[in-house]
Design a protein around this nucleic acid. Structure first.
Length: 347
DNA sequence: AACGCGTGGGT
DNA sequence: TACCCAAGCGT
């Protein structure tokens, strides 16, 4: 009768995927990977991680970078506050901790963007310190192993699983234990149709014994998204430049760039040119309707009617005219990249 | 505690 | 189509 911990760790060391952030234990690399992996699949993260580490190889280089360049490296990855918080925290590590990532719960947990999960992941993986790192995988796996029926969508659930991990975690190899739980959740103990027949810890699994693996974990459902209609306009001047503006520094897609966009519940198509004059201080002439853009976020849906317009005016009160050849310097969210594609490849 | 915050892939 | 899901965090 082997121990759960040993079966899990042996399996992990045998079967773990070769991932770029597993090449060494550099706390900075571990940190960046953990932030990118929040709510994001491994396959999506890999190319971003390579580019990011090439562009910002050290704490120092990221601390000294322009936020605009950090967001550009994050462009398309989503949850952009992760990038901004990471840079804020890295600057703090640079200034307060001499560039060394803290190796204790107290200091690490104070850093922007480093919550209970990420804190435990960095401590255990980079420093070998036995701390729980409870993510969605861990809750799913342990809910089955231990038959825990707490609703994992509720905030209080995480604490219950953290308490369980504190009792179970391997003191000898907390890194392999925590990563093993997550790897198991990603490869075997999946949300749907878990591969129990291949599971290295099947003999320890209470849910499997009772045939309840498909019923766990218990997870309540969120509410569905609301649709938000917008009117967006691509304004071209006589130099062939287009008008773009920076989004507000808080909220959705903060500090990213976009084409001017009006809330369509407040501004109609007929009012658009007038509205534009008030907002941007220049006169435009609507030319044509482009392909509408629909974008589904996690919590809302954008329905964007897109128009093309021209102007003879040069200096807007808001935003700036940018040559198409320079537009790649600016981080755009996906819905506005869809608009950009249309003016790059007309027809 | 509940909600805001992205995106791409799977069924 | 309409969900669900993925190595969460800040407010």
């Amino acid at each position: 009768m082997d121990l759960f911990q040993d079966d899990l760790i042996n399996w992990f060391q045998q079967e773990k995927r070769a991932l770029p952030w597993r090449e060494n234990q550099d706390p900075y690399r571990i940190w960046v990977s953990e932030i990118m992996l929040q709510q994001t699949k491994v396959d999506t993260v890999i190319p971003y991680f390579h580019r990011f580490m090439e562009r910002f190889p050290t704490i120092q280089s990221l601390a000294e970078a322009e936020e605009q360049d950090v967001l550009k490296a994050w462009e398309g990855l989503g949850y952009y506050s992760r990038a901004r918080n990471l840079q804020t925290a890295v600057r703090e590590v640079s200034e307060i901790y001499g560039g060394k990532v803290p190796d204790n719960v107290e200091e690490l947990g104070k850093l922007k963007g480093v919550g209970p999960y990420t804190k435990g992941a960095i401590l255990s993986i980079a420093y070998g310190i036995p701390q729980p790192a409870v993510d969605g995988n861990v809750m799913r796996v342990l809910s089955r192993i231990l038959l825990i029926t707490e609703d994992i969508a509720k905030p209080k659930a995480r604490k219950i699983f953290e308490a369980a991990v504190e009792e179970m975690i391997s003191q000898r190899n907390p890194s392999a234990f925590n990563q093993g739980l997550m790897e198991l959740g990603a490869l075997i103990c999946t949300p749907k149709k878990p591969a129990c027949l291949l599971c290295p810890v099947q003999s320890h699994c209470t849910a499997f014994k009772q045939g309840l693996q498909e019923e766990l974990p218990i997870k309540s459902k969120g509410k569905k998204q609301k649709t938000m209609p917008y009117l967006s306009v691509v304004v071209e001047n006589e130099q062939g430049e287009v008008l773009i503006e920076k989004r507000p520094e808080e909220g959705l897609l903060a500090n990213l760039w976009q084409f001017p966009m009006a809330d369509a519940t407040e501004v109609s198509m007929e009012q658009l040119a007038y509205w534009f004059g008030l907002e941007y201080g220049i006169a435009i002439k609507l030319e044509e309707t482009l392909q509408p853009v629909r974008h589904i976020f996690s919590h809302i849906i954008w329905e964007v009617i897109v128009l093309r317009a021209t102007t003879k005016d040069k200096v807007p009160e808001q935003g700036r005219f940018v040559a198409l050849s320079d537009i790649d310097d600016y981080p755009f969210p996906v819905p506005h990249q869809k608009i950009l594609q249309q003016i790059r490849i007309p027809e």
